[in-house]
Design a protein around this nucleic acid. Structure first.
Lengths: 213, 213
DNA sequence: TAGATTGTTAATCGATTAACAATC
DNA sequence: TAGATTGTTAATCGATTAACAATC
């Protein structure tokens, strides 16, 4: 199967969460326009995404929520557990760790790294915290594929380099530094300040436009 | 002036940060291919973005970094300070607050809200922490335009509603709930689990594709 | 049936990239 | 000049939306 469009992948992840919530509320089926309304998009887009993943409903009673969750999981979830490391255990690292803990059984945080001796050795939220000196050793021994980078900006590039040379496959970058890594490493920037500036720009622009009318 | 493409806005924010770093390192000019290399995009795209904002260089010696920063600031920065509130002062709220503190003088966190009496009244990182009961009062009196929502998932929709009715203009949503808000409210989803699942998907897909070859 | 809904093709929109003339 | 670089138009690519036949 070909790789799906990036935007579709993002939405599938969001649909799944919403579908789980609907299941919890006792729903068994959902219409495309319902799912669309919950995500502020159009029903056509929902149907198109679902077409992409090759799922078809039983006609006019909407999609079977349980089945749809299963199909999405088949696409999105790795067949084996993907082991993660959180690198940098400050407020952000802690927030992310507790956020992710037990949410996705196939995405498992198996190690946390920090430079602060006071944090090292602690077993925070059931995960061991190691010194960054042992990065390569632990990444190899625990078969870690993905790193969540939450260190201070001035340590980011150097740490990314160390991660890559330790055999990591992908980095989710929470720092404000644009990392440079080899092409074969999947890098996702997750940039708060950019998001915030974008919101600020559009809020400002919307205000200005509405004043004109 | 028309509103710029969303993607261009995002990149302008990223360029500016990089440009500041270059200034700190003593550079005065930068070529489009240098800036492109630092962001893993093409030089054409950099030039096109810069064309969009109406800046022109002095010919073949690249862009004047200081001037370019000024032009980007003129586009992106609100003319007046935009007041922000962080709603939910757990690990994530703390990380965001200290992250943003003093980074962008035009984007100022002027209040923090929480439900926990132990946090209320504290003056964390020089910002007062209030009870959510006083949401409307403080939002009005401190002229707050934008909220950063970091409350637990089950409180998110209710809190969003309270924020909207208190007169907020935009929400940056860090929770995993897809909020529903009126059209005129600018809503930006900032979703960690989706980002992580996306990275996981592409890492997995890349591995599979490379095994085929 | 009439009405609601899905699945899919074709059209549109928006963003990126290729190509290249102009500049220094 | 030759070479490097910019600014801009046109072509391409990818994602969204419109339109509509098929289904129940």
């Amino acid at each position: 199967m070909k790789s799906l469009p990036e935007k579709t992948i993002e939405r599938l992840s969001e649909y799944r969460r919403t579908l789980h919530r609907c299941l919890d509320e006792g729903k068994t089926h959902i219409f495309s326009h319902e799912l669309a309304g919950m995500h502020n998009i159009t029903a056509v887009q929902v149907r198109r995404d679902i077409m992409f993943i090759g799922y078809a409903s039983q006609g006019r009673r909407g999609y079977d929520i349980r089945e749809l969750i299963g199909v999405i999981a088949g696409i999105m979830d790795p067949s084996d557990v993907l082991n993660l490391a959180v690198v940098g255990y400050g407020n952000l690292g802690k927030a992310i760790s507790s956020y992710l803990m037990n949410k996705r059984p196939k995405l498992k945080i198996v190690a946390v790294f920090d430079i602060d001796p006071k944090k090292i050795g602690a077993t925070a939220s059931a995960v061991d915290c190691f010194s960054v000196d042992r990065l390569r050793e632990i990444i190899t021994s625990r078969n870690i594929n993905l790193a969540l980078l939450t260190v201070p900006a001035d340590a980011a590039q150097q740490m990314a380099k160390a991660l890559v040379s330790s055999g990591i496959k992908g980095i989710l970058n929470f720092t404000t530094v644009n990392l440079s890594v080899p092409d074969e490493i999947y890098l996702e920037e997750y940039d708060m300040i950019t998001s915030l500036e974008k919101v600020a720009y559009f809020v400002k622009t919307a205000q200005r436009l509405s004043q004109l009318s």
